[in-house]
């Protein structure tokens, strides 16, 4: 247990470190160019830092050439998102054995009290003769989101960093977005349910969906901007015991899984023949799936955890 927690923390730290490094890279390369062409003389110091370039090679750069690109916190706007980021997720279906830890962690951390979890693990089978597999499904954070298109009040919106969010303070509860979403990932707060004292009193921000949830409005997976902001991975990614999920930034071409391993996104998708759900609809999801070939365990093993329906845990109203 202790060990698990430790490695968990480590992986988070790795993620933070990497994120920071990548963030610096742009500034660094600019500064380097200035150095090279500017001929500013012999200000070189002995100290160097290690940076990873976009093609994955590590290089040593003089520390003096690197300056921190500050993301000014005050400029951050939940509707605009993080600047110069484009978040993506990769779901490796070969590794999923329906442990449902992603779901329970998501439910717990978003204080979901309705009957419907935001992440669902579907039993899928392409055709009768092909093997069944488990498909964890969350909001696909489409680049051409059908839900955003139809929202009459701009309550659901697409940010520059690729995340689709809902402003529950503005949603009028018409549920058109739910009808429009082909992935059935949106849920509705049909009633007002108790989420515990702390959550009920929390200040609402679209950045942290469901905290607190609002009766008569729509909710869904938010890609955890509140975790990204802390430099951590979304709850489902770090909770998965099988490293099914990897999360990262498309501009950095890197995704990181729950154990802290990083992959080059473009290579991963190419090598493993990644695909997106219902590509034909033109929704351009930000979630990629790796086909369930060479699976670590067979489908039957996941059936142990399968329940037709399991209610999400609800805190008791005082």
């Amino acid at each position: 247990m202790e060990k698990e927690k430790n490695s968990d923390q480590k992986s988070r730290r790795n993620f933070v470190e990497r994120g920071l490094k990548f963030g610096l890279l742009t500034a660094a390369s600019g500064a380097l160019l200035a150095k090279v062409f500017g001929k500013s003389g012999n200000t070189e110091s002995a100290e160097t830092v290690e940076l990873m370039s976009t093609d994955g090679t590590l290089m040593q750069v003089p520390a003096s050439a690197v300056s921190h690109a500050h993301e000014s916190k005050s400029a951050y706007n939940p509707r605009e998102g993080f600047s110069n980021r484009k978040f993506v997720m990769v779901v490796d279906l070969a590794k999923c054995r329906n442990a449902r830890k992603c779901q329970s962690s998501c439910n717990k951390n978003h204080y979901i009290t309705g009957e419907n979890a935001w992440i669902k693990i579907y039993k899928m089978q392409e055709s009768e003769k092909s093997a069944p597999y488990w498909q964890p499904t969350l909001c696909q954070h489409c680049d051409e989101p059908a839900c955003v298109k139809v929202c009459p009040v701009d309550a659901t919106f697409k940010r520059r960093d690729g995340i689709v969010l809902i402003d529950n303070n503005r949603c009028i509860g018409c549920r058109f977005c739910m009808a429009a979403c082909p992935y059935s990932v949106r849920v509705f707060n049909w009633s007002d349910s108790w989420q515990g004292d702390a959550v009920e009193q929390a200040a609402y921000t679209p950045d942290y969906a469901g905290v607190p949830s609002q009766k008569g409005t729509v909710d869904k997976c938010d890609f955890c901007p509140h975790m990204i902001d802390k430099g951590e991975l979304p709850h489902c990614v770090s909770a998965c015991p099988n490293d099914v999920f990897s999360f990262g930034d498309m501009y950095e071409d890197t995704v990181t899984n729950g154990s802290g391993q990083s992959f080059k996104l473009s290579k991963l998708l190419k090598d493993r023949a990644g695909y997106r759900l219902m590509e034909n609809l033109g929704t351009q999801p930000s979630v990629y799936y790796l086909p369930p070939s060479d699976r670590v365990v067979d489908f039957e093993e996941g059936m142990k955890n399968y329940t037709e329906f399991q209610s999400v845990d609800k805190p008791q109203e005082p």
Partner: peptide, 26 residues
């Protein structure tokens, strides 16, 4: 009657988006 938040009806005018068929209907 079908709206989850009828109290926010005015949002249709305050924040109305012409891309949405609901606005066309209104």
């Amino acid at each position: 009657i079908d709206m989850g938040r009828p109290d926010r009806l005015l949002n249709l005018f305050l924040h109305g988006r012409l891309q949405s068929p609901i606005l066309w209907d209104v």
